[in-house]
């Protein structure tokens, strides 16, 4: 069964492509647990729907939007414009910092407020899925937004000595370019005027940006490991009256290991999406 026809008939908005092309945070694609298997299916579908409706954009996507209601459309447009602007501000601040100082040292410190504000603001994406104005799975969006929040608040913000690592710049650049492309893609789609180069950027940039972002995130977590081990931060030790312990160091190790099975799955999924959206290839996916 080619999913394409079904998806086109369903004709959900371009928004459904959602995070599919959004490096470098990972999807929970592990096929072992039932919940993750379900997530995998839904992310597959989301991506396919998005791709299909973009392929037949003129016809399908506007209809979906008219069903959304004025208030929701207005809010989403405002939100997407604000987020595009926010990440643009970040991009400019980063470029200016580097031009003036000629070094990446102190870069994170200078932009951290803006970064934390806009990245935390992305939590609203989960709310959008929850209340149904964005047709992407809550679990997929939830995992992706929270992994970003994790990188910002629980790694970079909390472990000061690693803030000047080159790897921080690596994921910052990857995130910034990705988010500018992604949010402007949403904005222009909502306004019904999607320039081809934005669509092209959204489905090509990830080829480089996704591995770059993942590398940045992994190297940053790796750099954090010795500090976490030394300070024992965010860890709970026995004995305590709840009879449970938690070791942030091992948690980070497991997090890093989980990138190994997840990264290729998402990356190849996105390559398939790209072929479908940009080259109109019909990909017959295996029916489950």
């Amino acid at each position: 069964m080619g999913r394409l026809t079904e998806a086109a008939a369903a004709g959900s908005g371009s928004r459904a492509a959602g995070w599919a092309g959004s490096p470098p945070t990972l999807l929970p694609l592990s096929p072992t647990s039932p919940r993750c298997a379900a997530t995998m299916a839904s992310s597959d579908e989301d991506g396919t729907n998005g791709g299909a409706s973009e392929a037949g954009e003129d016809r399908e996507a506007p209809g979906e939007r008219r069903r959304l209601g004025v208030l929701a459309t207005a809010w989403l447009t405002f939100y997407d414009i604000a987020m595009t602007a926010g990440w643009l501000v970040l991009a400019i601040a980063m470029v200016r910092f580097y031009m003036e100082k000629g070094t990446h040292r102190g870069l994170y410190k200078s932009i951290q407020k803006t970064l934390k504000f806009f990245q935390t603001f992305a939590l609203l994406e989960i709310v959008h899925c929850l209340i149904g104005i964005v047709p992407t799975s809550v679990i997929v969006t939830g995992v992706q937004v929270s992994s970003r929040i994790f990188m910002v608040w629980l790694i970079t913000h909390s472990i000061k000595p690693i803030q000047n690592e080159e790897s921080v710049v690596l994921f910052l650049v990857a995130w910034t370019v990705t988010e500018i492309t992604r949010y402007s893609f949403y904005t222009f789609s909502l306004l019904d005027h999607l320039p081809y180069f934005i669509k092209w950027a959204r489905y090509n940039f990830f080829i480089i940006l996704y591995p770059v972002g993942v590398a940045g995130e992994l190297l940053t977590i790796y750099a954090a490991l010795p500090h976490v081990k030394k300070t024992g931060m965010f860890s709970i030790r026995l004995p305590n009256k709840y009879n449970v312990s938690f070791d942030y160091y091992y948690f980070l190790l497991i997090t890093m290991a989980s990138y190994i099975p997840l990264f290729p799955q998402l990356y190849f999924h996105m390559l398939r999406q790209r072929r479908k959206v940009l080259h109109g290839e019909v990909i017959v996916e295996k029916d489950d």
């Binding site: 004995p239 305590n240 009879n243 449970v244």
Partner: peptide, 12 residues
């Protein structure tokens, strides 16, 4: 693991 741990804390 936790119930039989040598550092187990009995109920309050």
């Amino acid at each position: 693991y936790y119930i039989n741990h040598p550092l187990y804390t009995p109920p309050t």
